[in-house]
């Protein structure tokens, strides 16, 4: 047994009931009080589509929608999302029918290795929910908090534009959308405003508050 002088470096965290509406289903699970949302979603609710890429809000792979706003689940304390409505990548499709954004990512090469894809899908769906006619610059602002190492973003933007065309009802299928509406705003506004619920805006303040609350997750410790 560890000696008496031993003091655990991990503070005792009580388990608390965490409940939220995850992808339309009310889920009630027991989670440690200091858990981050990413861990609860992955380990307790089975949403393995939410990916862990960097643990510090830099890659955007863990983006989920909390009450319609895209948020980084690795920088959100689970308890802060208690009682909210959460949409992950698994909640985008309507049953077996892919959402336009999913279909367009598949058909336009927006996904290569696919690890960052869930984050991109959620962030861009959140954009399309509020703006079905985004310019390339607005799309770039919406996904600037997400890193993709495979695609170079170009085909991702094409995918989102194609999905936007379907949201506007201008295109029947993803393929037709790309042909008919290559770029609705070829020039785009000079200084795009930051869209609401934009992921990087979220992480700036949370970086200092929530991130290191969870002991043992700091990359400085091992």
């Amino acid at each position: 047994m560890v000696g008496d002088e031993y003091v655990s470096m991990i503070p005792a965290a009580t388990s608390e009931v965490w409940s939220a509406e995850v992808n339309g289903q009310v889920r009630e699970v027991l989670a440690p009080s200091n858990a981050i949302l990413l861990d609860v979603l992955r380990d307790k609710t089975g949403c393995l589509g939410v990916k862990r890429g960097c643990d510090m809000g830099t890659c955007g792979c863990c983006t989920v929608m909390i009450d319609g706003q895209p948020r980084l689940s690795c920088l959100t304390m689970a308890q802060d999302a208690n009682g909210s409505s959460i949409t992950t990548v698994e909640g985008l499709a309507d049953g077996a029918h892919l959402a336009p954004i999913q279909q367009c990512f598949a058909e336009h090469g927006g996904s290569q290795c696919g690890f960052c894809t869930p984050g991109f899908l959620v962030a861009s769906q959140a954009l399309l929910n509020t703006n079905s006619n985004p310019s390339d610059a607005e799309i770039a602002c919406a996904i600037e908090g997400n890193l993709c190492r495979c695609t170079g973003y170009q085909q991702i933007i094409e995918s989102i534009q194609a999905a936007a065309a379907i949201h506007r009802g201008e295109a029947e299928s993803a393929q037709a959308a790309s042909d008919a509406h290559p770029d609705p705003h070829p020039s785009g506004p000079e200084e795009p405003t930051m869209p609401p619920g934009h992921a990087r805006g979220n992480h700036v303040w949370r970086l200092q508050t929530a991130a290191w609350k969870r002991f043992g997750r700091s990359p400085k410790r091992r």
Partner: peptide
Amino acid sequence: IPLVDANAKVTGQAWYGDDVR
């Protein structure tokens, strides 16, 4: 043509290393 595993990737069903439980 789309990648044959693209649908697994866009629905979150693709299982990466840490997704093996």
